[in-house]
Amino acid sequence: MHILSKTDHQLIFHPLDFTLTVLRNFGRNQGLMLAGAVAYYALLSLLPLITLSVLGLSHWVDQAELLATVQRYLEWLVPSQAAAVLSDVSGFLDNGVSIGVFLLATMLFFSSLTFSILQSAMAKIFAHRHATKKRHALVVALLPYSLVLLAGVALFAITVLSVAIQSLSQDYLYVFGAELPLQRLSGPAFYGLGLATEILILAFFYIVLPVGRTRVRHALLGAAVIAAIWEVIRHVLVWYFATLSKASVVYGSLTTAVVVLFSIELAATLLLLGAQVISEYEQLESRLGDAGGAG
């Protein structure tokens, strides 16, 4: 029994060929342009989505805990700008329910556009599947709103876990008579929770958004690779904006919006690039005749 498939063997010994194929087809599919469109509408729906999520979930979880959780993990999406974004969210929250209907309409409209463009981009990237069975129109219409609802559920779950981790960090662990403070483990625990959530969300997108079947192994592998790349880029962005960036001089009051849009576009580009990697992997499996390849 071979541990590595023919496809894995090809990737290990000819990684440059595969990488160039991915980049070439990503450009042919206008990945950067599509990522820009996704980022634009995602930016317009970001504040309403966060505000409504905090307003809704504050009935079950303390609002301060929610905001702390959002700020902690928003740094993963918009490095160095989470505090600025949440200051705007706080302004919305001060107005309470009076702007709830407007926020809901804005979030639903721009979120639906964001996920509609994502679905179109995925269809273009996975065109090799030649999916004959199309999704029902009702499924296509409800999918964006289902993903938004899922985002709210995920925020609730992460907040509960974060509160639990924070509570445990006040305790001590006794090992062979030695007293070890659990506070030292809270940092790695928060980081691990964020990284695991990022990988699972990416994998979920790769499974749900494209028409046709995406194998879970492919989705997790693509998500893990893209999450690792984003971690490097995220830390570089934090360092750059903290030390070298002159964005505030060039853009003035628009700095936060420009930097957030730039960060989201980078994240959207990687999301679509990960889909392209999975697509090329599937096609390579098909060419090499590997069992279990996507058809």
Score class of each variant (00 low, 15 high):
86 L>W: 03
70 V>T: 09
62 D>Y: 09
63 Q>C: 03
127 A>D: 13
98 S>P: 04
86 L>Q: 05
59 H>Q: 14
84 A>K: 09
131 A>F: 07
106 T>I: 10
65 E>M: 11
52 L>K: 07
39 A>V: 02
144 P>I: 06
67 L>D: 03
70 V>R: 00
78 V>Q: 00
80 S>F: 06
130 H>Q: 15
142 L>P: 05
85 V>Q: 01
126 F>P: 01
121 A>K: 02
61 V>H: 01
99 I>V: 15
103 L>M: 12
95 N>E: 15
55 L>I: 13
137 A>F: 15
107 M>V: 09
39 A>G: 00
67 L>T: 11
99 I>Q: 11
114 T>Y: 06
76 W>D: 14
81 Q>C: 01
41 Y>E: 02
45 S>E: 03
78 V>K: 01
109 F>D: 00
113 L>Q: 11
93 L>G: 05
67 L>K: 09
141 A>Y: 14
137 A>P: 11
91 G>A: 09
133 K>E: 14
127 A>G: 03
133 K>Y: 08
141 A>I: 12
101 V>H: 10
117 I>P: 00
113 L>R: 13
45 S>N: 05
49 L>K: 05
125 I>N: 02
80 S>K: 07
132 T>P: 00
101 V>Y: 13
64 A>Y: 12
112 S>D: 07
69 T>G: 08
100 G>H: 08
60 W>I: 13
47 L>K: 00
116 S>F: 11
62 D>N: 15
40 Y>H: 08
125 I>Q: 02
59 H>E: 10
142 L>N: 07
106 T>Q: 12
81 Q>L: 06
91 G>R: 11
40 Y>D: 01
46 L>S: 00
125 I>G: 04
92 F>L: 15
49 L>V: 11
58 S>Q: 11
112 S>P: 06
47 L>F: 12
137 A>D: 12
72 R>V: 07
75 E>R: 07
124 K>Y: 03
40 Y>I: 11
82 A>K: 02
80 S>M: 08
41 Y>M: 04
49 L>T: 14
